[in-house]
Nucleic acid binder design. Structure first.
Length: 577
RNA sequence: CGGGGCGUAGCGUAGUGGCUAGCGCGCCUGCUUUGGGAGCAGGAGACCGGGAGUUCGAAUCUCCCCGCCCCGACCA
C-alpha cells in the first residue's frame, strides 16, 4: 500500500516552465518524473511503478507468445558494430566512449548485433529454429534534438525482440506472431493506435509496419482511409498512377510567358493568353536537388511541393538531400530558375526522378529551358522520359486511397512500436548460419520488433489525460484505488485504513491519502492530478455509513455503504478495465 | 546545425546601473481551520547559469562559454 503521508512525492501547483506537451507537463507536475538533462529523466516512485506496470504487461504478452527474455549490457564494445558498419553508419547519434586504456565503446542505441551474436554462439542447426528472443533495456541515442519530454529522449527504455528463421516463410510467420502479440499488448495498455505500413528505412529489410498512437503532439504524420482501413506513414503512402493518353495531344508548343518564375504567375498567364481552365495541377514542376553532391531533377505536379522526407525514404543509398542553391545553379548555366523543363535532361546528364503522378502518357505545361518561355503539350514518353519513378510529392488529406480510391484523411501520432522483416543483413555481416536438412549452411533471416516502453508512458498520458490531470487505464495505474480520508476526526481515517487493507487483501492496490495536515481541497486536486482510476472519499458520507466512489475518467460518483465498498469498487474496476 | 525564446530559492516569477534581491506556491514553528489547492503570526532557504571585462558601484552593460525550451533540418 502506498501512503501519501510517506510517499516520496511532491506535486507542483504550477506547470514547469520547460514542459510544453501535456504528458511532460503532467508527469512532472504529478511527481512521476524529473528532468536531469535534455532528453534524460529520472523516475520517481509513482512514475517508476507505472513504467514497471507497462513492462509487466509487455513481458507477460511476450512470454505468452513463447518469446524468451534475455538481457544485454547497455555498454558495448565497438567491434560487433564495426562488423556491421554501424560504428560508422550510425554517425553522431551514437554515444561513444573510451575506457581507461583507450578502448572504444558505445552505449547501445539498439541491439541487433548482440542478439545475432548471442544466437550464433549457441545455435547451429535448423532444428533450433524458429527462435524469438527479447529484452527490455535502456537505450541511448544522441538525438540532434530531444523533444516533448519523455516522448523523444536520449535515454529511453525499449523492448526489442528479434526472430530467427531459416527461410522467408518462417520469417513471415514469426512476424505475424509478433504482430498479434503487439495487438494484445496495446489493448491491455489501453492505447488507441493504428497499424500503418512504413518504410523499412536505413535498417534494411523489406516489410515494415508501425503502431502509431494518434495524438496531436505526435511527431509522425500518417494517412488513413476511413472506408477500407488502409493506413500508411506519409513516407510509405502509395500514389494512384493516373492514366496517360498521349493520343491526339498536339505537338510540343513553346509559349511566350514573361515573368512567370512561379507556378501561380504561370497559371495566371496561361489563363489569360492561352485559353482558360489551367490550374497548378496541369503544370509540371522541375525541382532541382543535390543528392550526396550529385544534382538530380525531381518532377512533381505544380500544385504540390516535393516532400523531402518521402523522397529520401524512397531513395535508396542517399545520405543527404538538399535543395539547389544559387551556387549550384551557377554550375549548370543551362538551368534557368523558374523555367526548367525535363525535355533537355538527357543531354545535360542530370538524373530525372518523377513522382508517379507524372505518369507515362500524361501531358504537361512545364519550363522550356529558356527565360520567359514555357512549353505545353509536353508528353511523358514523347518529349521527355524520367530515369526513375519515386514517391516524392507531398501527400494531402483528400488524396485517393491506393486500395479503394476513397479520399484519405491525415493525422498525427506517436510511434509506439515498429516491426519489420530485417532479412539477412545482420546475419550476413556477422555470419550467423545454421545447417539445413541437407547439411548445407544457410544464413538465418531475422525480424526486428520494438516497443518504446518509456515512450508508452507518455503516449498513454497524452491519450488519456484531461484538463485537470492524468487518468490512467486500470492495468497500468500506479495504484488501482486512491482513497482520500477527510475531516479532523479519527473515524474517517480508521475507516479508510480498514477499507484499504481489505482491498489490498483482495489484490487491489491502493494509494491511501492519510495526511492529517492537508485540506480536503488539496487532497482532491492531488488525486485528480495523479490520475488513479478510482477515487474513494471517506468523509462526510460516513454520517450515513457511506463512502463516495468516483470514477476518475468519467467523473461518475456513487455512494455505497462501508460494508459494500470493497465489492462495489472491484466491480467498478472491472467495468472500467 | 539554422531560426526564435529563456536561465534569479525546490517550483512559478518580479526586478534594464544605486540601500540588506522582491512576491506567490512549497518547506519549518505555533495557533486556528478540515468537502475543493485554508487563515494569522513568526522563520529557513539565492555565490541572480559560469568566466572575463567596463564602472566608485553589475542580477542589470560588453565579450566568451555552458545549459534549457520551441520551430525547422535530423531521427530502426
Amino acid at each position: 500500500m502506498l501512503r501519501m503521508s510517506s510517499l516520496f512525492l511532491r506535486t507542483l501547483r504550477d506547470d514547469p516552465s520547460d514542459a510544453e506537451v501535456a504528458s511532460h507537463r503532467l508527469l512532472v507536475r504529478a511527481g512521476y518524473v524529473r528532468r536531469i538533462a535534455a532528453g534524460i529523466y529520472s523516475w520517481l516512485p509513482l512514475g517508476y511503478i507505472t513504467l514497471r506496470n507497462i513492462e509487466r504487461v509487455i513481458r507477460e504478452e511476450m512470454d505468452r507468445a513463447g518469446f524468451q527474455e534475455v538481457h544485454f549490457p547497455a555498454l558495448l564494445p565497438k567491434e560487433p558494430y564495426e562488423q556491421t558498419n554501424r560504428w560508422n553508419e550510425y554517425g553522431p547519434e551514437l554515444f561513444r566512449l573510451q575506457d581507461r586504456k583507450g578502448g572504444e565503446y558505445l552505449l547501445g542505441p539498439t541491439h541487433e548485433e548482440m542478439f545475432t551474436l548471442m544466437v550464433k554462439g549457441e545455435y547451429s542447426s535448423y532444428k533450433d529454429l524458429p527462435l524469438s528472443l527479447y529484452q527490455i533495456q535502456t537505450k541511448y541515442r544522441d538525438e540532434t534534438r530531444p523533444r516533448s519530454g519523455i516522448i523523444r529522449g536520449r535515454e529511453f527504455v525499449m523492448k526489442d525482440s528479434y526472430s530467427f528463421d531459416l527461410d522467408d516463410a518462417g520469417l513471415e510467420a514469426s512476424y505475424q506472431k509478433h504482430r498479434e502479440a503487439y495487438i494484445k499488448t496495446f489493448a491491455r495498455l489501453g492505447l488507441k493506435y493504428n497499424i500503418v505500413s512504413a518504410m523499412a528505412g536505413a535498417m534494411g529489410g523489406s516489410k515494415s509496419e508501425e503502431f502509431l498512437a494518434p495524438c496531436d503532439t505526435g511527431e509522425d504524420t500518417y494517412v488513413l482511409c476511413e472506408k477500407c482501413g488502409y493506413a500508411a506513414n506519409v513516407e510509405a503512402m502509395v500514389t494512384i498512377v493516373p492514366p496517360g493518353n498521349p493520343d491526339g495531344v498536339p505537338v510540343l508548343e513553346v509559349l511566350n510567358t514573361p515573368n512567370t518564375p512561379t507556378i501561380d504567375s504561370l497559371v495566371a498567364v496561361l489563363n489569360e493568353n492561352y485559353g482558360g481552365g489551367y490550374t497548378g495541377a496541369d503544370t509540371l514542376k522541375n525541382v532541382m536537388l543535390v543528392a550526396d553532391t550529385k544534382a538530380i531533377a525531381v518532377l512533381v505536379p505544380g500544385d504540390r511541393e516535393v516532400d523531402l522526407k518521402r523522397l529520401q525514404a524512397n531513395l535508396s543509398g542517399v545520405q543527404e538531400l538538399r535543395i539547389f542553391e544559387e551556387a549550384d545553379f551557377a554550375q549548370y548555366p543551362g538551368l534557368i530558375k523558374g523555367y526548367i523543363g525535363p525535355q533537355d535532361a538527357a543531354q545535360s546528364g542530370i538524373r530525372v526522378l518523377a513522382d508517379p503522378r507524372i505518369a507515362p502518357g500524361t501531358s504537361w505545361v512545364t519550363g522550356a529551358n529558356q527565360r520567359d518561355r514555357h512549353a505545353r503539350f509536353v508528353v511523358n514518353g514523347r518529349d521527355f522520359t524520367p530515369d526513375e519513378y519515386v514517391e516524392c510529392a507531398e501527400v494531402r488529406a483528400g488524396d485517393l486511397c491506393p486500395t479503394c480510391s476513397e479520399p484519405i484523411v491525415m493525422d498525427r501520432a506517436i510511434e509506439i512500436a515498429h516491426i519489420f522483416q530485417l532479412g539477412r543483413k545482420y546475419a550476413q555481416a556477422l555470419n550467423l548460419s545454421v545447417l539445413d536438412q541437407n547439411g548445407k549452411s544457410q544464413i538465418v533471416t531475422m525480424g526486428s520488433y520494438g516497443i518504446g516502453v518509456s515512450r508508452a508512458v507518455a503516449a498513454i498520458a497524452e491519450q488519456t489525460h484531461d484538463a485537470i490531470g492524468l487518468s490512467w487505464p486500470v492495468e497500468i495505474a500506479p495504484a488501482k484505488v486512491h482513497i482520500v480520508a477527510t475531516g479532523k476526526e479519527d473515524n474517517p481515517f480508521n475507516v479508510a485504513e480498514e477499507l484499504a487493507n481489505n482491498l489490498e487483501k483482495s489484490g487491489i492496490t491502493v494509494l491511501l491519502d492519510d495526511r492529517r495536515d492537508a485540506s480536503p481541497g488539496v487532497k482532491f486536486k492531488d488525486a485528480e492530478l495523479i490520475g488513479i482510476p478510482v477515487i474513494v472519499v471517506v468523509g462526510k458520507a460516513l454520517e450515513f455509513g457511506n463512502v463516495e466512489v468516483r470514477v476518475r475518467r468519467s467523473g461518475e460518483k456513487s455512494e455505497v455503504s462501508v460494508a459494500d465498498a470493497s465489492t462495489f469498487i472491484s466491480n467498478v474496476l472491472i467495468a472500467n478495465s
